[in-house]
Simulated scan of single mutants.
Amino acid sequence: MASARARRQDAAGTVDDLLATAERLFAEQGVENVALTAIVAESGQKNRSALHYHFGSRAGVLEAVLDRRLAPINARRHALLAAADAEGGVLAIVRADIAALGQTVVEEPWGPDYLSILAQVTFHPQLLGERQVRGENLSGLRLARARIEAAAAAGRLPARLIARRMEWMRDSVVFAMARWVRDTPPAQRTAAGMATLVEDLATYGAAGLLAAPPDQPPVDKKTIGRGPQT
């Protein structure tokens, strides 16, 4: 029994070491430029087949790296969305959605590396191949999207247009945050600085989501002053 538990602990430690090393190298060098053998060597693992055994491929490693960080970000997003219920409205929902990532970037030591990898995958989704992150780690994103769609639909915006704009907004947020991290020295990446960026992005995103199409009268924001309380 004790021996089996020790083996499980050793295996878990190996996986953690491999993923931590992969995360750092993916962020520093770019996902496409990191050989699996380099991850094994940098992690100090003697078993050169360990990475292939646990993950199968670079895409498998990337999927595991993302899932490892998406879980706590997802929990944070749910908490922020729950707090946004008291304020209501599209701006509050968008702010909570964006803040989950922004707060992680400045509060977690792995936040900047995760953001770098997220930006790479956002721009090059083919990096994951046929792999997909776990659906349960995206429940906060789905909740935010559902609330925004319901609120925006009240302003008579077509669902297809809302979905397209939300994709644009998410891309803008990821790249804007990645640029902020790149251009801001680590000592200056403060919670206050990120809060300002989050507020600017939320205001920009909410305005873009609710803008009336050229062939439609302006959206009456009074009809969508509060998001659905679900």
Rank of each mutant, 00 (worst) to 15 (best):
T21V: 03
A64H: 07
G193F: 02
A38I: 00
T21I: 04
R189Q: 15
A71P: 11
R226F: 03
I93C: 11
T203F: 03
K46T: 12
R58I: 08
L141H: 12
Q45E: 11
A12Y: 03
L127S: 05
P112K: 07
V219D: 06
H124E: 14
T230S: 06
E42M: 03
Q188K: 06
N74C: 13
V15R: 15
A20F: 00
R145S: 13
Y53F: 09
I224H: 03
L115D: 10
G225K: 11
G44D: 03
A187R: 10
A41F: 00
A79L: 14
A163P: 02
V15N: 05
L18Q: 10
A192V: 05
A176K: 07
L101R: 08
A11T: 13
R24L: 09
L101K: 03
I93E: 10
Y204C: 12
G89Y: 03
G44V: 01
L197N: 04
I224D: 02
V31F: 01
A50Y: 08
S49H: 06
T184N: 05
F123C: 12
I98A: 06
A4Q: 13
A159R: 13
A176Q: 08
H78W: 11
T21P: 01
Q9D: 14
D171Y: 11
D113C: 05
A150K: 12
S116P: 00
A153E: 15
F55I: 00
E130H: 05
A163V: 08
A38W: 00
R164Y: 06
R8K: 14
Q103M: 14
R164V: 08
I148M: 15
I93T: 15
A22D: 04
G89P: 00
G129L: 08
R7H: 08
P109I: 01
A82S: 13
D85P: 04
R77N: 07
P228K: 08
A83R: 15
G13K: 04
T196A: 14
L51Q: 04
L51P: 02
I93H: 02
L197Q: 07
H52L: 09
S57C: 06
D171N: 09
A154N: 12
L81Y: 04
R76T: 10
F26Y: 15
G30V: 10
A153Q: 15
R170M: 13
S3H: 06
